[in-house]
C-alpha cells in the first residue's frame, strides 16, 4: 500500500516522508472518541489523511469482539500507538504486539508520565525509542517540545519527532510557538509532526506555518459538533499553513508600511 501512496504523490513534489514512505497528506488522525463508526469514517474521508493511529488493548473475553480495524478504510496506513503506557517496558511490549498483529514496523511511541497532564516521560520515551529502533521499528515519538530531547530522539534513530502543541485532548493550540520554531531552525532535516493539543483549524495552520511537516490530531476532529466538517477544515488549514511556510512570510513590523505609492497623491 505504501507503494501506491508513493506513486500517487510522486508528481506532487511536496510530500510528507516518514520512514521512506511518502504521503501526500500532512494530516495524521486518530480513531478514538467518535460518536459512531460512521461518523469516524466520514471524518477520515473528509480529512484526506492517509494514515490513522490506533491503540492496542486487551481483547475482551466475555463477548465476541469484531475487529475495530474492519471499520477503517483499507487504503489507510495504520499507525499503532503505545497510548496508555507508563513505562518503557510496557511501550516495548505494546509495540511488539502491534507489529506482530499488523505486520507494520511503524509505531507512534508514547510513554506517559502523569495521568492529569498526559505529559510524556521523556526519559522512558528515549529508552524505549533506542530499543525499538534497534529492533527495526520506524519510531515516531510523542515528546515535550524540547530541542535537546528532539536531538536525542533523532540520534537514537527515530524517523520523526512529534512534539506536543499542548496537553493531549486539551484543544489549547500551540502553547509555545518559539520552541517549535527553534526546533525547526535547529533541525532543518528532521521530520517534525506536531502531535496533540490542536483544537481548531487555526491551531493546525499555526503549527504548519511554524514549519511543522505534519500534524497529528484526534480530539479536535472527533469532539467537534460536526467531525466531517472539522476534518475538512483541518485539511484546508494544514494545506494553507504549509503553503504559507513554503512561501515565506513577510517580516513583522511595529509600524505601518503603505502598500500604495507615496508619490502622485492629489493635493
Amino acid at each position: 500500500m505504501s507503494t501506491a501512496i508513493t506513486e500517487k504523490v510522486s508528481d506532487a513534489g511536496d510530500s510528507l516522508i516518514i520512514g521512506g514512505r511518502a504521503f501526500s497528506s500532512r494530516l495524521i488522525i486518530g480513531t478514538g472518541k467518535y460518536r459512531s463508526f460512521g461518523e469516524m469514517r466520514a471524518a477520515h474521508a473528509a480529512s484526506g489523511a492517509e494514515m490513522v493511529t490506533v491503540a492496542v488493548r486487551r481483547v475482551p473475553l466475555d463477548r465476541s469482539s469484531e475487529s475495530f480495524l474492519d471499520h477503517l478504510d483499507p487504503a489507510l496506513q495504520i499507525l499503532p500507538n503505545t497510548a496508555g503506557c507508563y513505562t518503557a517496558e510496557d511501550a516495548l511490549r505494546t509495540a511488539r504486539l502491534a507489529r506482530e498483529a499488523l505486520g507494520t514496523d511503524l509505531v507512534k511511541l508514547e510513554v506517559i508520565g502523569d495521568q492529569t497532564t498526559l505529559f510524556p516521560d521523556n526519559e522512558q520515551t528515549l529508552e524505549a525509542a533506542r530499543i525499538l529502533v534497534k529492533e527495526g521499528f520506524v519510531v515516531l515519538p510523542y515528546f515535550n517540545d524540547d530541542l535537546i530531547m528532539a536531538k536525542k530522539l533523532l540520534d537514537a534513530g527515530c524517523a520523526a519527532i512529534m512534539p506536543l502543541a499542548a496537553p493531549i485532548g486539551s484543544g489549547l493550540g500551540v502553547q509555545n510557538p518559539a520552541n517549535l520554531r527553534i526546533m525547526r531552525e535547529q533541525l532543518p532535516d528532521a521530520t517534525m509532526i506536531v502531535d496533540a493539543g490542536v483544537g481548531t483549524a487555526s491551531d493546525a495552520a499555526i503549527a504548519m506555518e511554524l514549519g511543522a511537516d505534519g500534524v497529528l490530531m484526534n480530539t479536535a476532529i472527533a469532539e467537534a459538533e460536526d467531525p466531517a466538517k472539522m476534518a475538512t477544515a483541518m485539511k484546508l488549514a494544514i494545506e494553507a499553513g504549509r503553503l504559507a511556510y513554503v512561501a515565506g512570510r513577510m517580516p513583522k513590523r511595529l509600524y505601518a508600511s503603505a502598500s500604495s505609492p507615496l508619490s502622485g497623491v492629489i493635493r
Binding site: 491503540a55 488493548r57 475495530f68 502491534a98
Partner: peptide
Amino acid sequence: VRRNDWPATLLNDEDRIEIVHFVGGGS
C-alpha cells in the same frame, strides 16, 4: 509468540497470556 508458532506452543501451569487487538484511539 508469532502467529505461526501458536499451534506448536503448549501452555503450562501459571502461564500468563496477553491477547490484544486494536481499538480506536489517538494519544
